[in-house]
Amino acid sequence: MENILEVKDLNISFHTFSGEVQAIRGVNFELKKGETLAIVGESGSGKSVTTKAIMRLLPPQNSEIKSGEILFDGKDLAHLSEKKMQKVRGKDISLIFQDPMTSLNPTIKVGKQIMEPIIKHQNASKSEAKKRTLELLSMVGIPNPEQRFEQYPHQFSGGMRQRVVIAIALACNPKVLIADEPTTALDVTIQAQILELMKELQKKIDTSIIFITHDLGVVANVADRVAVMYAGKIVEIGTVDEIFYNPQHPYTWGLISSMPSLDSTEEELYAIPGTPPNLLHPPVGDAFAPRNEYAMQIDLEEQPPMFKVSDTHYAATWLLHPDAPKVEPPAAVAKRMKQFQAGQEGQ
């Protein structure tokens, strides 16, 4: 499948009073046409910074793209002028923010906020834009679009507001949609509705989605491929089945085993010990080594490269080096792997 977006060796730093924070340290990935790529990781792992860099929304005063390319449509977004970038934002690439309570302007009617990108990017007249807006409102499942058009954000519930935000993001049929924790602030039942809506709309307008979340349940639901980020790097990337049923990186193991499943009966939950490193002074070797019970001497000395597991599956851990000792993953992960292998052989 063709790549629509390619991020190559991206490095981003923030300049703070205490020094340079290396938030993104060499991120590589590509987004294919029509797929959903989920990026998971803890807060501070750099998932939001990556997507803000793609949109060039990082504050220019203290952030800097040190090196790397963001290739989209033959252009390098990392070095595009602000004026040209404005033609990309909201038209080719659009963003859904986490909190629907703060991402809409409270003093402007909802209809006008949806019309804005249509008028701006498609040179539509007001009446055309209004027609399109009403279509969008009913497409995202908001009843009585005519009446809702004239209302203000505070008259909408959280789930309905997130639908409005989605309508704005989809107004110009973007090629790439970035959803930054779009359901984290919502209830489970509303979350399920929004996820269903996003999947349905993706089929309809054939857009690619980058979905950022820390909820592995949501990932399993929406993603085609998954990238796991830790301390400013992608530590493992693969198809959703590969990540959930054949994970290779100890951090992914930790994430998967620390989620209680609904049928689990274990007495104690697996918890990854410690906290993520401070990226003011990133560790020399593998950033996860201090929290990793499988860490070897080399993990403290040298950063592991991406090892290939399959054509679609890569992981950055020295455990995959041919000279590394064989280790047994945690019980919960081993059980998943076994079930999956059994399932594959059955097919």
Binding site: V188, T189, G217, V219, A220, N221, A223, V240, F244, S261
Partner: peptide, 17 residues
């Protein structure tokens, strides 16, 4: 309804939920 809305960290079961 509440229980049926929880996404589980298991892609296989998510596809048929």
């Amino acid at each position: 309804s509440l229980l049926s809305a929880i996404p589980l960290p298991d892609p296989e079961s998510e596809r048929i939920r």
